[in-house]
Design a protein around this nucleic acid. Structure first.
Lengths: 263, 263
DNA sequence: GTGCACTCTCCCCCCGGGGGAGAGTCACGT
DNA sequence: ACGTGACTCTCCCCCGGGGGGAGAGTGCAC
């Protein structure tokens, strides 16, 4: 049996950390002296400690580590691990896109933004709407667009989206994706929806959707500078999207902010 | 001028977060009503908010973000950003190696470990020693080995290292790197050092150094199972290292644990 | 029996926020 | 001139995954 200090030396986990893992039920000492509280570890626990160490290096949350450790089934264990690796991969994508748009933000000679005021009449479209979490918007979007395309047949115009502000403020909100349709069907989640008339300040974002925040910000600056105020959810129109061109650099998204004049 | 809520909508930063950035001096409102405490933002602050947003997505610490924002010089700014990107790259390496060694740990049929007991006599070597942080060991190692090679001329045997336990326990400790030499020189940081005689439990680790923890653990299990105790700092011998073979999978490192028999 | 290394619990700190309480303020409509 | 609802303020507690250190108790060798 090993004292906690010895076990710490053997596993390269600090004594503090070992106590925490005991407390969390991750790595319970083989014995605890009930009089003194001294922890005793068994040599067989070293491999487990190693696995925990590696998983923590991958930033697997302690609760997940516990699930992985406790599942005796190697298949289920492998599944849990690869789940986390997929999450890391997603994280990496996020990082990559942040780098791209950061470079764009720090670009010393930025592309000037042209903003257009446009009155949009009442429109009836084929739409799918939902309440969605901010981090699952991309997946929702892809699914909804596929279902819309299937319901419509041939596109007569580019798809559009309507995004509630709470999606950006609180990470969750109402989202609507639509395709133009002369006679919107009711099939699956697809419904005819009538969008109200609005006056939009429109700017076109070129590039992947991840850095549309930049155009959002520029558009926001413009709206403020022109003494206008924002009224209602943002609208986007995907003039050129993933379905039209595989290269994200070629995508063109119209961002429309409903406004009213502060006269 | 914009109220905090409006500014939040324009930048997609939560009100809570904007207040925190004010507190941290990162993004100070253009005006604060001294009677009510209400914050007012200027439209010109939107681009700054965007940059902060992106930097935070890259997990740049708030203090660093502040330095980047405050430095008007674009060159210095670019340097600070690319510093952080280098850190992210290093992080990615760490992640990759953790994945590799995790796979190895979960390997259902592991390579059996052979451990040898070996009496090592007193030896005098050419050495560089230092107190080093755990995360800068790799860089220190490369620099020290290059300096040793330059001082020795031609190697008459593989390099070795002696690592204080506190390096693993507290993340900082005494480190010694040495090459065999009949007549150790004194040049630069190189000094003759006499290593004491020890009895070692030796195992050979095959593969990159990142996952040597695995062999450490197996060696630890063996030591415990054979009723031995650890006495003193770990020794490593780099039989095949980066200088000998560019492929990490071919590297061979002897790990030697000083022991004494608990008779 | 005495010193020293070890271990125990407990509390506070770090980061970058989120949640919510309770109070004060603004602007709109009647 | 007064609601009333939306907005904003400060303040405190919470999260995860530890680190630092205080103060007290223990194990072991000399």
């Amino acid at each position: 049996m090993l004292a906690i200090g010895e076990f710490s030396r053997l596993t390269h986990l600090s004594v503090k950390t070992l106590r925490r893992y005991h407390e969390a039920g991750l790595l319970v000492p083989a014995a605890v002296d009930r009089a003194t509280g001294y922890r005793s570890y068994d040599g067989h626990q070293i491999p487990t400690a190693q696995v925990i160490h590696r998983l923590r290096e991958l930033d697997v949350p302690l609760a997940d580590v516990r699930r992985i450790i406790e599942s005796g089934d190697p298949d289920r264990r492998a599944a849990l691990v690869s789940d986390h690796l997929a999450r890391l991969e997603a994280e990496l994508d996020r990082t990559r896109s942040a780098v791209v748009s950061l470079r764009r933000l720090l670009d010393p000679d930025p592309v000037p933004l042209s903003v257009e005021l446009r009155a949009v009449p009442v429109t009836t479209v084929a739409a799918i709407e939902d309440d969605v979490d901010g981090d699952s918007v991309a997946a929702w979007f892809a699914g909804a667009l596929a279902e819309l395309d299937a319901a419509i047949g041939t596109r007569t115009g580019p798809p559009g989206g309507v995004y509630d502000n709470s999606l950006f403020e609180e990470g969750r909100g109402h989202v609507l994706l639509h395709l133009p349709s002369a006679d919107p069907p009711r099939r699956g989640r697809v419904r005819p929806v009538t969008l109200p008339a609005v006056e939009l300040a429109v700017a076109t974002h070129v590039g992947p959707h991840d850095d549309s925040d930049i155009t959002y910000g520029e558009l926001g600056s413009w709206v403020v500078a022109n003494a206008l105020a924002v009224a209602g959810p943002v609208r986007e129109t995907y003039l050129v999207g993933p379905a039209d061109d595989p290269d994200p650099a070629a995508w063109r998204t119209e961002i429309g902010w409903p406004i009213f004049r502060m006269t």
